[in-house]
Design a protein around this nucleic acid. Structure first.
Lengths: 206, 206
DNA sequence: CCTACCGATCGGTAGG
DNA sequence: CCTACCGATCGGTAGG
């Protein structure tokens, strides 16, 4: 009697390896040239197959995009969680905030293929794909909202500050880096330090 | 002897009105659906003509995009200059900065058709179009760099702060609003006030 | 500004 | 996973 692996979705079979190669290639192109500007033929050629053969692995270009974006969001959350794990119990809002900024920036700048695709392709994401990822997005935004709420609880935030607007502002500040960032100028650590400092203390002396 | 208007490029002729209508329509679609996702046929139909007829006014889709983007950058600068004109001589860095933020946000949020096209389509902009607009972009970035330099001269900026990174951060913060902003929630004035305050003083109390 | 049309390309499919 | 192909659509053109 054979022992079958009922959850073989992550099995290291040849088929799954190929599938992964396709997603990797797609992520690279979608991130660099854009979703609509990338023909499936280009992806197929890169992985060494014919366009039609992609449909053995995916049922549509949108599905491919959805997998790239979903993977990207998971990677971002993983990286941020990894950074957050370095904090000790009862860390101050300042420490927590800076750590989250560092994690997010590392995620979108160190391995941008997956993680920056959604930022660079914002307007190109098909509505159905956007809907499918909605829950993940809300969950990640809530993670940041919780950090800000921590600041409120610790009583360190300016009174009357619109916390939603604060969240959107730091998102914009960080996410825009996925457009201007070039390797080799500033380190990601430095960018994180400066951006966190600006948001915590502003750019003025004193 | 006829008096001819040698610079009739802005003349209010029927042809120029039509041309303007085409650009307006294109700006709307490019901003909302994206450059690549907008077929020329859609623009043509909206203005009541056939696709091929657009080529009486423009020689390519890229040229149309270039005009939309160039107009957008001019409109942004105009709006910002308009706000800056309300300042009196010798205004403090804080006042100047906040005023510039308000002007930029008004420009990209009040009439987003032209002004937000470049932000929402960043990755889709054809390289040749990007090159053609490079000088305008540099000039506008310099305007902001000059504001920050003013802060340095007045000695109010935190020592050692990377001014280029400060500029990129406020750009990201403001420009990202063109993605999340919906009319009717917060006024643009309120958003400008909060974002300027965050950048000047941070989100912490004291 | 229209008619009529093009070459190219696109995402996707049938059948093996 | 390939061969062979599709219907549709695209930006763009010639000639009027």
């Amino acid at each position: 009697m054979m022992i079958t692996n009922k959850d073989n979705s992550k099995a290291d079979t040849k088929g799954n390896k190929t599938r992964q190669l396709i997603v990797d290639t797609a992520a690279k192109s979608f991130s660099k040239k854009g979703y609509l500007a990338t023909p499936l033929k280009e992806i197929a050629t890169s992985v060494g197959m014919k366009t039609g053969s992609l449909y053995y692995h995916f049922s549509s270009k949108e599905e491919l995009m959805e997998e790239v974006l979903a993977t990207g969001m998971i990677l971002i959350k993983q990286k941020v969680d990894e950074e957050m794990a370095t904090l000790n119990e009862g860390a101050s809002f300042q420490e927590v905030f800076k750590t989250a900024v560092r994690g997010h920036l590392k995620a979108i700048l160190q391995h941008p293929d997956y993680t920056s695709t959604s930022l660079r392709n914002y307007i190109q994401i098909p509505p159905s794909v956007r809907d499918a990822l909605h829950a993940k997005r809300v969950s990640y935004e809530q993670f940041w909202q919780d950090i800000i709420t921590l600041g409120e609880k610790q009583g360190v935030l300016r009174k009357g500050l619109d916390t939603r607007l604060l969240k959107l502002s730091i998102f914009g500040c960080m996410n825009w880096a996925s457009i201007w960032y070039k390797e080799g100028e500033k380190t990601i650590e430095e960018i994180a330090t400066v951006q966190a400092e600006i948001f915590l203390h502003g750019c003025l002396a004193e």
